[in-house]
Every structure is written in C-alpha cells, then in structure tokens.
C-alpha cells in the first residue's frame, strides 16, 4: 500500500464536499437527471408539505445510502436490487410512522406520496450508482447532497405555486388585500399539477441558460 492511500482523507475534503454541492446545480436530480418528477409535481402546492417531503427524502436517502454502503461487500450480486429495495422500504415505513405519530396533518396531506418515496427513482439511482461502490461517509454526503438538490427544486416550485396559487407563504397571507380589491385573483391553475410541470420547465430553462455546459448538443 502506498503512503498516499494510508493517509486518511479529511471528512470535509474538497472531493467530499463536491458530493454535496454538485447535485444542487450541475448534477441536480430533478432538473438535470429528470428523476423524482412525480413527487415534485404532487406535493408542491404548498411550502409546508414540500419541506416535509424534502426532509423525509433526505432522511430516507442518507440512511439507506449509509446502510447499503456498509453492507456493500456482503450483498450478494444477484439479489442486490432486492436488498436495496428492502432497505429503502424499511426506512420509508419508519419515516411514515414517525410522521403519522408527530405531524399527523401533514402526513395526511402527503398521503401516499411518503409511501411512494420507495418508487422515487432518485433513491434507487443513488444506491445502485453510488452507495454500492463507496464508503459510508461519502455515501452519506452523496445522499444529503442529492436530497438537498431535490428539496431545493421542490421548495422553489412550492414557493411560486403557493404565492401565485393561494397568495400565501407558509399559510400566511402575503399578497395585500388592496390587490384583491383592485381585482387581482389567485391563479387556481397554479394549484394543479400541470403548472408544477411548467414551473419545472422554467427552472430547467433558466438553469441551462446560465450553465451552457448542460445543453445537449
């Protein structure tokens, strides 16, 4: 073994931090990899459920990444997808139970979507592509990073949908009554999933306009 590999890599080395920051922009799971769109459309009508969803995905993704990374040398190749699914499913059920016990209202709003984290492509994608071949700490950071990238987009979408659709931010009215008196109306279309898709489109447009590298030739 060479001296280089013996030396321990610092916990927050530049390489490790890249795992967290890259998914926020250049490698964003929603806008670049186009994964996890389904829940991005479904739970973003208001900010609060969007944030709870993002936190739930973060917990599930980081924990599953660590668990799979710890097990990676023992997992039999032929059933590795099943093992990954069992790990994700267990985490998702745990999160769902905790939400039901402590934030019941939000858990009702999120309804099936917490359960559907299991089918969120971001999770399987990260486990298969990253956690299976990396140590627990980078895997943990990778999970946090990807969940942050996912959450960031969710929160941006939810912000505009709640503002334009309901005239509120975190259920607090921010559009002054005077606007309504002048004939301003909340845009009911923003509440519906199609406008979330269009919002995602606009975000992708702005992002690619700023990062020319992302534009496919």
């Amino acid at each position: 073994m060479s001296a280089e590999t013996k030396e321990r890599e610092p916990l927050f080395s530049a390489k490790n931090m890249k795992l967290v920051t890259k998914p926020l922009n250049m490698d964003n799971p929603i806008t670049v990899q186009v994964l996890g769109i389904c829940s991005a459309l479904a739970v973003t009508a208001k900010l609060k459920p969007a944030i709870v969803m993002s936190i739930s995905v973060m917990v599930v993704l980081a924990a599953s990444n660590v668990v799979v990374s710890l097990l990676r040398n023992g997992i039999p190749q032929r059933i590795r997808i099943i093992v990954q699914l069992v790990v994700i499913a267990t985490m998702v059920i745990l999160v769902d139970q905790v939400l039901k016990a402590f934030v019941y209202d939000i858990s009702k709003q999120l309804s099936v979507f917490v359960g559907l984290i299991i089918t969120n492509c971001i999770l399987m994608g990260r486990l298969e592509a990253f956690a299976m071949g990396n140590k627990p700490w980078p895997a943990f950071l990778d999970g946090i990073g990807n969940a942050l990238g996912y959450g960031l987009i969710l929160i941006i979408i939810a912000f505009f949908r709640e503002l334009l659709g309901s005239g509120t931010i975190f259920d607090i009215h921010v559009i002054p009554q005077a606007f309504y008196d002048l004939g301003y109306k909340n845009n009911g279309l923003m509440i519906l999933p199609p406008m979330a898709l269009i919002t995602v489109g606009v975000i992708i447009w702005i992002q690619r306009n700023r990062n020319r590298d992302l534009i496919e030739k």
């Binding site: 023992g74 997992i75 039999p76 059933i79 093992v83 069992v86 499913a89 267990t90 745990l94």
Partner: peptide, 19 residues
C-alpha cells in the same frame, strides 16, 4: 443468498414492528 435474504427480512421485520 438464502441465508442473507432470511436474516435481512427478520431484521427489517423486527425493526418495523418495534417502531
């Protein structure tokens, strides 16, 4: 593979039922 799967399922079940 069989042993691995069996142990994994038992651990998951124990974890979920206690939660």
């Amino acid at each position: 593979i069989l042993r691995y799967a069996a142990i994994m399922v038992i651990i998951a079940a124990a974890l979920l039922s206690s939660a």
